[in-house]
Design a protein around this nucleic acid. Sequence first.
DNA 1: TAGTTTTTGTGATTTTTTTCACTACAAATA
DNA 2: TATTTGTAGTGAAAAAAATCACAAAAACTA
Lengths: 218, 218
Amino acid sequence: MKTNKLCIIRLSKYKNALYRLKSLGFVRVFSDNLADAVEATASQVRKDFSIFGISGNKRGGYKIDELIEKLNIILGKDELQKVIIVGLGKLGTALSRYTGFEKEEIKIVAAFDIDSTKFNQTDIKMIKLNEKTPVLALEYLPEFVRKNNIKIGIITVPDIAAQQVVDIMLSSGIKGILNFAPIRLRGNDDCIINNVNLEGELENLIYFVNASTKTKGK
Amino acid sequence: MKTNKLCIIRLSKYKNALYRLKSLGFVRVFSDNLADAVEATASQVRKDFSIFGISGNKRGGYKIDELIEKLNIILGKDELQKVIIVGLGKLGTALSRYTGFEKEEIKIVAAFDIDSTKFNQTDIKMIKLNEKTPVLALEYLPEFVRKNNIKIGIITVPDIAAQQVVDIMLSSGIKGILNFAPIRLRGNDDCIINNVNLEGELENLIYFVNASTKTKGK
DNA sequence: TAGTTTTTGTGATTTTTTTCACTACAAATA
DNA sequence: TATTTGTAGTGAAAAAAATCACAAAAACTA
């Protein structure tokens, strides 16, 4: 099974598009429709599905409900995904309260920082996961992660502090890290690190905008 | 000149790494060091540079200061980039106050929303760009963009509202959009739309973590 | 039922991106 | 000055990803 990051991201987009189509009352889709909805080609949609053994009906397309279900299983959305976040600066605070994750069965169950003015809990034993997101001292991270079997962590600390947080996460058993610090982090084979670089995204956009306004003579 | 998005993103990473190396007292780098700093290969670094006509010294590597300067020009960092943002939810608010952009010569000069309780300015004529980020009614966007010659916009509105914002941006003269709404937006050839999908990034990570824990037998 | 249409599924092909491997040359050394 | 060493620069090769193109099957049509 030949998968790559881009392919999985497309699956995720297909899933989102399917929910929208469903809410519009559609029952079936064709590869063509999905391609259109996610800016891909029809054959790419079909190839992505074939990689995962998802099949439709010739001339009948795909049944939306079935497709959503299959994609959700592939994407691990059949169970709630517990995530922690480290670094309650502006971005971290926003993400820890961001409601967009909920509909995706993703829940930020705890936040960690080193600034004691941000803590709202000091006794880790008292924490219940369905209450308001606890904000804890970073030193509690390993215990929390082990007790609650957390696999995914988000890093929103300044770049100088990021590697240290990675090291703590790795030794606590975190298996996947989403890193917002614009620096390369060193992990190990047991843990996947994905990066989101907001400054980089903007720089990229600026580059291409400049490049095209220059070419087209403004 | 054969450029692609990934290549530009790497340039951006090289630049960040160079600043760090510089602050550590380094004066020169080798392609090897940069490769290491950004998780690339040495030949890729050299090829990226060769695409942009950046040359170093055989056996001497690259002079960091010169390299930073060249990269900054390529990336449009020789002048302040003015950016607007639409949608002051949690994420939008965080981004509009995020300090990480400043060091990159990127400034969010205005924010727009439709919720009047968020406005802090009602007279667009009174706004000075070096004061606190003004929060304005969305209807002022076209005027503001034209008057201040803004080229880049960020979208952090809910997905149902996003296309409408794109349309307003396009007709106002915005040339590049960074979109955080998890939906495909339709632009035109005159405007580049880049997407950041946070839910998607997490889903992606979850997929690969699940895939690897299954393979390795937990 | 035979023919026509439509859409899937996938091997083959093309394109894009990355890596390899080697040359050239500057600096260091003898 | 001759020799060695280390690194840039780059065309060629390989790998990865996307696209094409067509057979096969299902669903309509008459």
